[in-house]
């Protein structure tokens, strides 16, 4: 949405923090320049990781009093890039730089039926949407899948608000989500909005295409922060620049290249646009494609990658989680 994506940076004061599930912290912010956050919108936050400035995107879970109180919820992922660890240290009274709400994931009013699908922390993008659909008395189902109840934020509140319209799947209770069944329940005028791990979203995309449903009715937002593998440290070589650099677990390949002085082009930095494309010359390991820019055909060809989100990993098999002995190595050409 070109119109509403002008970034307006401002200070936000933390007014409330609290745990809402294992490793999930709810943070309520009072922005200086409040505007109401539409369903599907997120804010970008400037975070500090090892003294380095970076930004993270968080869905707005609740927007109250015309946006004077914005709630977000942050999952602490020990293996991720450190932004969430910073966010978990925030206390009431702290100030941080945030954008006014940005919209990449608008909810359209007017579909005959809605399915909202949340995997884990992805629920944060769905809460606001579900509330609006309920208020408008539209036909909707909120599907919420997680590993265990303790790890699923807002479960009780959602149960209370949405009753029958909420369907919960919990892995460790033996009621995992069956993607095929879910997609089979969609009709041609159903819109499905989803947010969750890349595996889940990929499975839904495939099932949606196979069911020959209308592709634009499948809506999702990706921040490029979930992959097929756990992130590992790996080595990038750029022969033309004489570079050999290590990409840490909590760093992206694009950032590592920039830090090493490579003049890199980029656009979205979240795996959508393909502007950060690099060509793969040699690979010792596997590429964990975390973008939504390449088709499956292009991803399996392993000739190019979106270096803002995608990584090299050692595991040849999705199921191995043995600790790597030597890091993966990818040799690339940059434009």
């Amino acid at each position: 949405m070109a119109a509403t994506n002008t970034e307006v940076w401002q200070y936000g004061t933390v007014v409330e923090v609290g745990s809402v599930a294992t490793n999930i912290q709810r943070i309520v912010l009072a922005p200086e320049l409040p505007v109401n956050a539409e369903p599907g919108s997120h804010i970008d936050v400037r975070v500090r990781i090892d003294g380095r400035e970076d930004r993270r995107s968080y869905s707005v879970v609740e927007s109250n009093e015309g946006g004077r109180r914005l709630a977000i919820s942050v999952l602490k992922t020990p293996l991720s890039r450190g932004g969430s660890i910073f966010m978990h240290t925030l206390q009431p009274g702290d100030q941080l730089e945030i954008t006014q709400p940005l919209q990449n994931f608008p909810l359209r009013v007017g579909a005959a039926r809605y399915i909202l699908l949340a995997g884990g922390i992805g629920i944060t993008a769905m809460i606001n949407m579900a509330r609006i659909l309920k208020n408008l008395r539209l036909d909707y189902t909120l599907v919420y899948a997680g590993r265990s109840r303790a790890a699923m934020a807002y479960l009780d509140e959602l149960q209370q608000l949405h009753g029958e319209n909420l369907v919960v799947h919990v892995d460790d209770e033996g009621t995992p989500l069956n993607v095929r069944q879910l997609v089979a329940s969609a009709t041609t005028d159903t819109e499905l909005y989803m947010c969750g791990p890349i595996r889940l979203m990929d499975a839904v995309r495939r099932a949606w295409t196979e069911a020959r449903l209308n592709y634009p009715n499948l809506r999702y937002e990706t921040f490029g922060n979930s992959g097929w593998y756990q992130p590992e440290e790996f080595i990038v070589k750029v022969p033309t620049l004489g570079l050999e650099i290590r990409v840490g677990q909590d760093n992206s390949m694009l950032e590592a290249l920039e830090d090493a002085g490579a003049d890199m082009m980029f656009g979205c930095r979240k795996g959508e646009c393909g502007l950060c494309e690099v060509r793969i010359l040699e690979l010792d390991g596997t590429i964990d494609h975390r973008d939504v820019f390449y088709s499956t055909r292009q991803q399996t060809a392993t000739t190019k990658m979106a270096c803002c989100v995608s990584r090299a990993v050692t595991s040849k098999n999705l199921l191995t989680s043995d600790p790597p002995t030597a890091p993966a190595v990818v040799t690339i050409a940059v434009p």
Partner: peptide, 17 residues
Amino acid sequence: CVSMPAQETINPSATVP
């Protein structure tokens, strides 16, 4: 967006109000 002629996928952000 239902078609992006220059690439094999459709960018999920590609919408106009």
